[in-house]
């Protein structure tokens, strides 16, 4: 079966389009998160989406409404992580740990009330991009526009706080506000990404393209463009390979990402 044959399938077209949009978001935000040592925030917020998905499934909501219902929960949790870290004077990773475990615990309880773990819940845990609906694609596109516009408008502010917060503050940048926006944009992206690679693997989609790009990039903009390219290649490649070899799509995307990381690390070694 050739690539053009594969692209005849409407569900694959939707998967590629949604996957590409989400890959772009994860790759852009990933660079900021990795350099700010906030890599695991994606993992923490993904665990929170598990709780909200379990709640939506308990009420038997349709798939697209499950994602919509997850948005306020994840946004609130994102703010919660920042507030806990600030008010309780905890390190960010400890705050992420608290909110993340709360999300998982809530999810398990709700899943148990709904009669245990079923196929729907597993599709969110491990991803089901090939089953993405037209409505979900539209939601993905709308959130993509919001996140990309925000990053484009705040690019220099985000770059400045990523390099050094105190220097950014002395340039008149409102560091707290920009931090909040970064975490909220990540929360929106996590909601979208749970359909692509699943709750269990979201953080990999945020971290791997960025880390791979950082092996090779010689400039901040280059790092972002490289991360985006790698993210798109891994998602598209993962979808094709999983379709042809009948493998789980989310896991295949992550494996492709990891292979790209290995290649980039070897290239860096050769170059130095």
């Amino acid at each position: 079966m050739s690539i053009s044959d594969i692209l005849q399938f409407a569900f694959l077209q939707r998967a590629l389009l949604a996957g590409t949009l989400i890959a772009v978001l994860c790759s852009v935000l990933g660079v900021f998160l990795v350099l700010r040592r906030l890599s695991l925030i994606g993992d923490g917020l993904a665990h929170v989406t598990f709780g909200s998905v379990a709640l939506a499934l308990l009420f038997r909501l349709q798939s697209v409404y499950t994602s919509i219902a997850a948005i306020p929960v994840v946004l609130l949790s994102a703010v919660g992580i920042l507030k806990i870290a600030e008010k309780a004077r905890l390190y960010g990773d400890a705050a992420i740990g608290i909110v993340s475990s709360l999300g998982i615990a809530g999810g398990i309880m709700l899943a148990s009330l709904a009669g245990g773990f079923n196929v729907d819940l597993f599709s969110y845990l491990f991803g089901s991009i090939l089953a993405i609906s037209r409505e979900e694609l539209l939601l993905t596109f709308a959130l993509f526009v919001v996140v990309i516009l925000s990053v484009a408008l705040l690019y220099h502010d985000l770059f400045a706080i990523t390099f050094d917060e105190q220097l950014a503050a002395t340039s008149g940048i409102r560091v707290g506000l920009i931090n909040n926006i970064l975490v909220l944009l990540t929360a929106l992206t996590v909601v979208l990404a749970m359909k692509v690679v699943g709750i269990m693997l979201i953080s990999a989609l945020l971290i791997l393209p960025a880390v791979t790009a950082l092996q090779l990039a010689r400039g901040f903009r280059t790092a972002i463009f490289l991360s985006v390219t790698l993210g798109i290649v891994s998602v598209a490649g993962g979808i094709f390979v999983s379709f042809l070899l009948n493998l789980p799509t989310g896991a295949t995307i992550i494996i492709v990402n990891f292979l790209l990381f290995v290649v980039a690390s070897l290239l860096k070694k050769v170059r130095t």
Partner: peptide, 8 residues
């Protein structure tokens, strides 16, 4: 490993 140049 910060990927910014001197100029940036």
């Amino acid at each position: 490993n910060f990927p910014a140049t001197v100029e940036e």
